[in-house]
Amino acid sequence: MFRLFSGVYLGWGLGANDAANVFGTGVATGVVKYRTAVLLTSIFVIIGALVQGSRGMHTIGALTDVDINTAFIASLAAALTINVLTVLAIPVSTSQAIVGAILAVGLLGRGVHLAILLKVLLSWISSPIAAALISYLLYRGLGSLFETRVSNVRIWSLIMKIGFYTVGVYGAYALGANNVANTTGVFLSAGMLTPFTAALVGGVSIGIGVFTYSKRVMYTVGMGITQMSEFAGLIAILGQDITVHIFSWIGVPVSTSQAIVGAVTGVGLVKSSSAVNYSVLGRIALGWLSTPIAAFVIAFALLKLYGLLF
């Protein structure tokens, strides 16, 4: 059972980092109290994981054949990758880390299912684009409606408050539904957990990460997004939430950090075509390469070490 620790550890890191993308702006603008945000995020992450987390788990599990030991190593390698790249300030994604680690398992084992790998790769590339498109359309549609229909300050304030809570809760649900597969998906395919217990353990570990270590990231990310108007920030988060939720239906875990960057770009494009920040997009591309490669290398090294020792 101790092997499950690596999955819990990965989930903890995911919760600590990614909760910022759903409630960061609400907290940074002072609309939502930090304690309320972490409580709501933890609850809805678990609900999302339990209700809709299984599709992503099957995808992750179907990438290659894993046993209990290789599941442990893949999960540990992904967690170490997250830690190392975070320390090196290189953009990192849990979804990409776990896939990179699983590929190493597949390469040294019984191979990788290429069709599923292709589906995952296409999802990674399309998720920020989808987020940009969704946010662009939402901002275009709702922006003018919001400006013409909301006739006074008090109503504006009320809508924004309700909005930040709603997109935060929805985002937490989508995060749980989409990303829980990263934490315990490999243990499900190794036969160590049932779908329910995998979702529960993964969801709870993400929740613990949110509860214990998300404050600093939440404020940093939140302050970054609040450079925009509050309405634009709200739409960007909603765009991210919808995107992540769509990919939960498709059954591929994607990066919420990359989705939010895409969503912010989409909102910016409504105002000006020069809103595209190429350096940020470059960092996403760097994340696509660096995270799976680093996870692959670490997992490969751990598997070789395991082979030598046992």
Binding site: T29, G30, V153, W156, S157, M160
Partner: peptide, 10 residues
């Protein structure tokens, strides 16, 4: 009362 940013403005 109100959104914090609006509160400050008011």
């Amino acid at each position: 009362a109100f959104m914090p940013s609006l509160r400050e403005g008011l």
